[in-house]
Design a protein around this nucleic acid. Structure first.
Length: 584
RNA sequence: GCGCCCGUAGCUCAGCUGGAUAGAGCAACGGCCUUCUAAGCCGUGGGUCGUAGGUUCGAGUCCUACCGGGCGCGCCA
């Protein structure tokens, strides 16, 4: 409908241009808004206000000139000039209700579009270090990333979902050492566990597995392990040098092969757990990209930057001159001990992404990584890749509340709330929905009690309930033995004439643009708010008017409208990863 | 100190990228089940959009400064 009005306006504007009233090069394209107030009609445009200056006329006068040149159209029943110069359009009922037939015909495809035009776009999200189970902070990134990816796919992008597995860093060595030390404890060795090691219960589980696989073959006495190891923090030493020394000792005592065995056992166990957790959350990936496979790419990327003259040596280390590309300070890519930095891996990784042919890349990061964006973009630019093709979205952490009290979390101590625990407590539907119901960059309070509640307070249930109610209407209809074909329903919509029905039809007609905007702005919350509104409007209608009335013409029309509402609720909820129960 | 994010009703948040009288939901109060699911609906009250300037026909939205909250500023990952 907006397109139709836009065409009419275009026609009028062109006429004014050829008459010399408006300049030929007028850039303004008419913006068509949905009106907030029904007294203003169904749609409104501010084009007369925007181009008044160029026409050197006052807005109302220009509006009148435009209206005089609007072609007649049977969908438009009335055009008014209002306020400072808005042009309001009133739409015919037949035109308003035609969306119902459109929805019933298109079904699951209603709302989808090809705005993306098949462009290749990658969404990389979660990418948590595989050093422990996912916690509730990762959950928000998972829900947001998965939803954004699905939204983009719905508007015609070719989307690839990727998890970057940090399987090469120091944290992984700490995990391997932690597993081995727990194993030694199981074997009967006694010592103080390093304060910087991973202490979660899951480490013990992996150690048990190790014991089963390897028996006592990997056992060394506590004395050999800890001799000459610098003191840990509680003993007045430094926790970092303590754990690093233990890692080195572990490698030395086990030898490369057995160390790798322990390392991979830990990595795979945790990765399996993460995969399983995310799959259970309805989050699926096309690619699990291993950092370890980047080894050659890192050297190549450093070489590339070297060739471009963007690197220099200082104090034994190799630096990237990122300040040339807008960063605050230069960054080390190779340390004085010869090892490349995490940043170097990331340079290589991002180059790799674009070499795989993605037109656009979206990274979803925790908000604490925001300071990292300028240097990654700087690296891309230095390598000749347009940094605007990378879009980094930050997700703020969610704070959990239970019984009005903040739920405390701390990762290292092992006392965190895992994503799995959250899913078990509130269910996947509520978790998926709640996580994306706020703007990603907004701090969020996650009320566990509300997510669990089965009442209208809980937006997930509220929306699902609207869906279930419509399914119930269908059951009633079928019980009565009445079968109505889709064609029959579509033909019946002329009988609609209530205000509530117009409101519903207006909302339904907005779905495609809500979806398009929600997707292209990477803001799933726009869709959740829309669905809440649609469900509410339906509940109002349902309470005020009976659908299954005696008079079959009206009955069929109302059924058609109800089914259309159900279809849009289903399409929206499905994109959000939320189920659509037919009974509740 | 520098950088990024945020500040809208008592609470949790929207506000369609500058439009008409700033909206929902909770919480408070009053109503609605012999009728397709009351997991629902209807009604009432509630605001100096952090503060002060600026840009213009028009600002919650844009620019500047300040106030308040969060995060980040490693040869960590």
């Amino acid at each position: 409908m907006k397109d139709k009005i836009s065409q009419l306006l275009e026609h009028a504007l062109n006429a004014l241009k050829s008459e010399g009233i408006l300049p030929e090069d007028l850039a303004a394209t008419p913006a068509i808004d949905n009106t907030k107030d029904k007294a203003h009609g169904d749609f409104a445009t501010n084009i007369a206000l925007v181009s008044a200056k160029a026409a050197r006329r006052n807005p109302r006068e220009l509006a009148q000139l435009i209206v005089d040149r609007l072609p007649a159209d049977k969908a438009v029943t009335q055009v008014e000039i209002a306020g400072p110069g808005f042009i309001n359009f009133f739409i015919s009922d037949a035109s308003s209700f035609s969306v119902i037939g459109d929805i019933l015909q298109k079904g699951d495809a209603f709302g989808k579009s090809n705005i993306g035009g098949g462009q290749h776009i990658q969404v990389e999200f979660v990418s948590a270090n595989p050093t422990g189970p996912l916690h509730v902070g990762h959950g928000r990134g998972a829900a947001y990333g998965a939803t954004v990816a699905d939204l983009l796919a719905a508007i015609g992008y070719d989307v690839q979902r990727e998890y970057y597995v940090n399987d090469a860093g120091r944290q992984m060595n700490i995990l391997a050492a932690s597993v081995w030390l727990r194993y030694l404890e199981l074997e009967g060795e006694r010592f103080t566990f390093p304060s910087n090691g991973y202490k979660g219960e899951y480490v013990l589980d992996i150690a048990r597995q190790l014991q089963q696989d390897a028996g006592n073959r990997l056992r060394h006495s506590a004395e050999t392990v800890f001799t000459d190891i610098p003191a840990d923090a509680p003993q007045g030493g430094d926790k970092e040098t303590h754990i690093d020394a233990l890692i080195e000792r572990c490698k030395k005592l086990l030898g490369a092969d057995d160390y790798r065995l322990v390392f991979d056992l830990g990595l795979n166990a945790i990765l399996d757990d993460i995969r399983d957790d995310l799959a259970g959350f309805g989050v699926h990936y096309q690619e699990w990209f291993s950092e370890r496979t980047l080894e050659n790419d890192v050297d190549a990327a450093i070489q590339l930057l070297q060739d471009k003259g963007c690197l220099y040596e200082k104090e034994g280390a190799l630096w990237f001159r990122s300040t040339d590309f807008g960063d605050d300070k230069d960054r080390v890519v190779r340390r004085d001990n010869g090892e490349t930095t995490y940043f170097a891996s990331d340079i290589a990784y991002h180059r790799n992404k674009f070499e795989r042919g993605f037109d656009r890349v979206i990274n979803i990061w925790g908000a604490d990584h925001h300071g990292y964006i300028p240097r990654v973009k700087a690296a891309l630019q230095a390598m000749g890749i347009d940094p605007d093709r990378l879009d980094v979205r930050l997700v703020q952490f969610a704070i959990l509340y239970r019984g009005g009290e903040r739920v405390q979390m701390s990762t290292r101590s092992g006392s965190f709330v895992t994503l799995r625990e959250l899913r078990e407590e509130v269910g996947n539907d509520a978790a998926r929905f709640f996580y994306v119901t706020r703007k990603a960059e907004q701090h969020m309070d996650f009320d566990l009690d509300l997510a669990k509640s089965e009442s209208k307070d809980n937006p997930v249930y509220y929306i699902q309930y609207a869906h279930a109610r419509i399914c119930s209407i269908q059951r009633k209809l079928e019980e009565a033995g009445d079968v109505v074909s889709t064609e029959q329903l579509i033909g019946a919509v002329d009988a609609l004439n209530l205000d509530e029905e117009r409101d519903l039809a207006g909302l339904l007609a907005r779905y495609p643009e809500v979806l398009a905007q929600s997707a292209s702005q990477l803001e799933p919350h726009q869709l959740t708010h829309y669905l809440r509104e649609l469900a509410g409007q339906f509940h109002t209608y349902y309470n005020a008017h009976k659908v299954l009335v005696e008079e079959s013409a009206i009955r069929d029309a109302r059924i058609a409208l109800s089914y259309a509402v159900r279809q849009v609720l289903k399409n929206g909820l499905t994109l959000l990863g939320v189920s659509t129960p037919s009974e509740m």
